[in-house]
Amino acid sequence: MIPLPRPWALASALLLGTAVGLIVGIGVRLAIDVELRPDVVIALVVGVPGGLGLLTVLCSNTRWATAFGAFLLAVAPGWFGVLVAIQAVQGV
């Protein structure tokens, strides 16, 4: 059984994860200026945080570990949203 944290703690972890994803997405985009294939970038941006978060949630024994896994899961949509916004602004 996965130990669920309090609803406010889970919502806070998801909100912070999305905000961190936005900040990390902007920082990585500014720091790295290498042309990569879009499918590779999407796999890295969505797959790595999603896989780590899912693994953390499934293997958690405490409520804070479940909240941390939810935080990691929420990083991916924020980061992906930054990439989509950048592509929309560039007109590609």
Results as ranks from 00 to 15, higher is better:
Gly47Tyr: 00
Leu36Gly: 00
Ala65Asp: 03
Ala13Lys: 01
Val41Arg: 07
Leu54Pro: 00
Ile23Gly: 03
Val92Trp: 12
Val28Lys: 13
Ile2Met: 05
Ala74Leu: 00
Leu58Gln: 10
Thr56Pro: 10
Arg6Pro: 10
Leu16Thr: 12
Ile32Met: 15
Phe68Cys: 06
Phe68Tyr: 07
Ala13Asp: 02
Ala65Trp: 01
Ala76Trp: 03
Leu52Trp: 04
Val57Tyr: 00
Gly51Glu: 03
Gly51Met: 00
Asp39Gly: 02
Ala88Arg: 12
Gly21Val: 12
Trp64Asn: 05
Val28Gln: 14
Ile23Lys: 12
Gly47Gln: 02
Gly27Glu: 12
Cys59Gly: 04
Val92Glu: 12
Val45Trp: 03
Ser60Pro: 04
Leu44Met: 09
Val41Asn: 02
Gly21Asn: 11
Val57Ser: 00
Arg6Asp: 14
Ala76Ile: 02
Val40Tyr: 11
Ser60Asp: 03
Leu10Gly: 09
Ala31His: 11
Gly50Asp: 00
Val46Ile: 15
Gln87Trp: 14
Ile86Phe: 14
Val41Tyr: 03
Ile86Ser: 13
Gly25Cys: 15
Val48Arg: 01
Ile32Pro: 12
Ala9Arg: 11
Val75Met: 14
Val45Glu: 02
Gly50Phe: 00
Ala88Val: 13
Pro7Met: 05
Asp33Tyr: 06
Arg37Phe: 08
Leu10Glu: 08
Gly17Asp: 13
Ala67Gln: 08
Pro77Glu: 05
Pro77Trp: 04
Gly81Thr: 15
Gly69Met: 05
Val34Gly: 08
Leu52Asp: 01
Ala11Asp: 07
Trp64Ser: 10
Leu22Glu: 10
Ile2His: 04
Ile26His: 14
Ala11Tyr: 12
Met1Trp: 02
Val46Leu: 15
Met1Arg: 07
Thr62Arg: 09
Val75Cys: 11
Leu10Thr: 07
Ile42Phe: 06
Leu36Val: 11
Ser60Tyr: 03
Gly81Asp: 11
Asp33Trp: 09
Ala19Thr: 13
Pro49Gln: 01
Gly25Arg: 13
Pro38Ala: 09
Ala85Tyr: 05
Ala43Phe: 03
Leu14Cys: 11
Trp79Val: 10
Val75Thr: 12
Phe71Arg: 02
Gln87Glu: 15
Leu44His: 00
Glu35Asn: 10
Gly53Trp: 00
Val40Trp: 12
Pro77Asp: 08
Thr62Pro: 03
Gln90Gly: 06
Gly78Thr: 10
Met1Asp: 08
Leu10Gln: 08
Leu22Thr: 12
Phe68Lys: 00
Thr56Met: 14
Gly91Lys: 06
Val40Ile: 15
Val24Ala: 15
Gly27Thr: 11
Ser12Glu: 10
Val45Tyr: 03
Pro3Asp: 07
Gly78Tyr: 07
Phe71Lys: 01
Thr56Ala: 13
Pro7Tyr: 09
Ala9Asn: 07
Ala13Val: 04
Glu35Pro: 04
Val75Tyr: 06
Leu55Cys: 05
Ile26Ser: 11
Ala19Tyr: 11
Leu4Thr: 01
Ile2Leu: 10
Val20Gly: 00
Val84Ile: 14
Gln90Cys: 03
Gly91Ile: 08
Ala31Asn: 08
Pro3Cys: 08
Phe68Ser: 06
Val24Asp: 07
Ile32Trp: 15
Val84Asn: 08
Gly50Gln: 00
Leu73Met: 09
Pro49Cys: 01
Arg6Lys: 13
Ala43Thr: 05
Asp39Leu: 11
Pro3Leu: 07
Arg37Gln: 10
Phe71Cys: 06
Ser12Met: 12
Asn61Cys: 01
Arg29Thr: 15
Pro77Ala: 03
Gly51Val: 01
Thr66Leu: 10
Ser60Arg: 02
